[in-house]
Simulated assay, not measured.
Amino acid sequence: MVERTQPQDERWAAVDRYIGDHLLGEDVALAKALAANAAGGLPDIDVSPAQGRMLHLLARMAGARRILEIGTLGGYSTIELARALPGDGRLVTLEIDPHRADIARANIAAAGLADRCEVITGPALDSLATLKGPFAFVFIDADKESNAAYVEHAIRLSRPGTAIVVDNVIREGNVLDADSPDVRIQGTRRLFEAVAANPRLTATAVQTVGAKKWDGFLLALVTG
Score class of each variant (00 low, 15 high):
89 G>N: 09
8 Q>P: 01
158 S>M: 04
47 V>N: 02
76 Y>W: 11
155 I>N: 03
200 R>G: 04
88 D>E: 15
142 A>T: 06
88 D>T: 13
58 L>C: 02
74 G>M: 05
134 P>I: 08
51 Q>W: 00
125 L>T: 15
159 R>C: 02
220 A>L: 12
61 M>D: 07
9 D>I: 14
148 A>F: 06
205 A>Y: 15
32 K>P: 00
93 T>W: 04
100 R>P: 01
93 T>F: 06
54 M>L: 15
136 A>Q: 15
134 P>G: 08
132 K>D: 15
148 A>N: 07
68 L>C: 04
120 I>L: 15
117 C>N: 01
42 L>R: 00
2 V>F: 00
106 A>D: 13
198 N>P: 05
202 T>V: 13
26 E>Q: 13
22 H>R: 13
153 H>W: 14
85 L>Q: 08
23 L>G: 00
178 A>Y: 03
192 F>D: 07
35 A>G: 06
159 R>E: 14
39 A>R: 14
70 I>G: 10
55 L>C: 07
120 I>F: 04
59 A>T: 11
141 D>I: 00
14 A>K: 06
116 R>P: 05
40 G>T: 07
184 R>T: 12
159 R>K: 14
183 V>Q: 13
205 A>E: 01
36 A>H: 04
73 L>F: 00
76 Y>R: 01
118 E>R: 12
179 D>A: 14
180 S>N: 08
155 I>H: 03
113 L>G: 11
54 M>R: 05
130 T>N: 11
108 I>T: 07
47 V>E: 02
78 T>M: 08
16 D>A: 02
220 A>D: 08
151 V>L: 11
205 A>W: 14
102 D>Y: 04
170 I>M: 14
103 I>D: 03
49 P>W: 04
118 E>Y: 03
171 R>G: 03
156 R>G: 14
21 D>N: 09
8 Q>V: 10
128 L>G: 06
112 G>Q: 11
217 F>K: 04
23 L>F: 15
130 T>I: 02
45 I>D: 01
142 A>C: 12
74 G>R: 03
161 G>K: 13
17 R>N: 05
140 I>R: 00
13 A>I: 00
177 D>V: 03
97 D>E: 14
208 T>Y: 03
106 A>I: 03
29 A>L: 06
120 I>G: 01
182 D>P: 10
104 A>R: 02
5 T>I: 13
62 A>P: 04
157 L>K: 12
135 F>D: 03
1 M>W: 01
79 I>E: 11
60 R>W: 02
100 R>L: 09
20 G>D: 14
67 I>S: 06
224 G>T: 10
71 G>A: 06
112 G>Y: 07
201 L>V: 10
75 G>N: 05
97 D>Q: 11
53 R>N: 11
79 I>G: 10
128 L>F: 08
206 V>C: 09
91 L>P: 03
190 R>M: 10
44 D>W: 00
129 A>H: 09
115 D>E: 15
56 H>T: 07
90 R>M: 12
14 A>T: 10
105 R>G: 02
131 L>P: 08
43 P>W: 00
145 E>L: 07
57 L>K: 01
2 V>W: 00
95 E>K: 08
194 A>V: 02
201 L>E: 09
203 A>Q: 08
208 T>K: 00
5 T>G: 09
193 E>H: 13
22 H>A: 13
198 N>G: 08
197 A>K: 13
20 G>S: 10
3 E>P: 07
202 T>C: 11
149 A>P: 01
